[in-house]
């Protein structure tokens, strides 16, 4: 019982202390840019009403989800194709290294040329930034598939689609997940940036509007909401990973113990 209590205290202790400190220190703040936390929290409740969430946060999340999903599918499909062929891999590697190194946000103006400024543009921006880490990690994962396991599969006549499903994808899955994790933070960045460039709704758009109209407590509440969103999505990812890669973590622990 005390063990549980102690752990709970360790988890919430410092965050609670920080928030209390912020609250107390800012209570009488005259600084225009750093309003009292009380005001920010009040603004949070006033600003992020269910209608606002539906009008601004939901479209952002929908674009994020669509772009991220597409990037995942394209990245894994192309990654498996490239990873399974040493020649194709050698030919594609420098090109892929270049595209990975381009800072994703500079793709926004490029994609605006092709896709205008609608929803399609924002989804494509997210896809074009997220696809590289997934693709490169999938290539690496497929390439390093264990040779004995690969022989076993062939000896038992597991080929074609079955080989993809039962060997290549599961064998590459730890790397694929690592790529998807990198892609998630890029996706959030691009969601916000693409809305800052050209949009009539969305989180990024709204927060910049607050900043431009000097609605400082509202702006802070938006920053907090973005932070919560980032944290929530990363926890969701961790949960999904925990289930999807249970075998991998078990295997790693077993190897470490021996």
């Amino acid at each position: 019982m005390t063990g549980v209590l102690r752990r709970l205290l360790l988890i919430v202790g410092l965050p609670a202390a920080l928030i209390v400190t912020w609250y107390a220190a800012s209570a009488n703040s005259e600084n225009f840019y750093a309003p009292p936390l009380r005001q920010i929290l009040a603004a949070f409740a006033d600003t992020w009403t269910p209608e606002r969430l539906r009008a601004d946060v939901l479209p952002s999340l929908a674009r994020l989800g669509a772009g991220y999903l597409l990037a995942g599918l394209i990245g894994i499909a192309a990654g498996v194709a490239i990873g399974a062929s040493p020649r194709l891999r050698a030919a594609a590697e420098p090109v892929l290294e270049f595209f990975r190194a381009v800072p994703p946000p500079v793709l926004v103006p490029v994609i605006m040329l092709f896709a205008g400024i609608g929803n399609g543009m924002k989804v494509i921006v997210i896809v074009s930034g997220c696809v590289w880490p997934v693709l490169l990690n999938t290539v690496e994962g497929v390439r390093s598939t264990d040779s004995v396991l690969s022989d076993t599969t062939r000896a038992y006549g597991i080929t074609g689609v079955a080989r993809l499903r039962h060997l290549l994808l599961p064998a590459a899955s730890p790397r694929i997940v690592a790529g998807l994790r990198q892609a998630l933070s890029i996706a959030i960045i691009l969601m916000v940036i693409s809305e800052m460039f050209a949009a009539s709704n969305g989180l990024g758009f709204t927060i910049v509007q607050f900043q431009r109209s000097f609605a400082i407590p509202e702006m802070w509440s938006g920053i907090i909401l973005l932070g919560l969103l980032g944290f929530g999505l990363s926890e969701l990812f961790r949960l999904a990973e925990h289930f999807a890669l249970a075998w991998y973590h078990g295997l790693r622990d077993a190897q470490r113990r021996s």
């Binding site: 004995v148 396991l149 022989d151 076993t152 000896a155 038992y156 599961p170």
Partner: peptide
């Protein structure tokens, strides 16, 4: 035709 390899740890599907 079935085969059993020396490297048991690497010939079973860990997942």
């Amino acid at each position: 035709l079935a085969i059993v390899f020396q490297e048991y740890g690497r010939s079973l599907f860990p997942w």
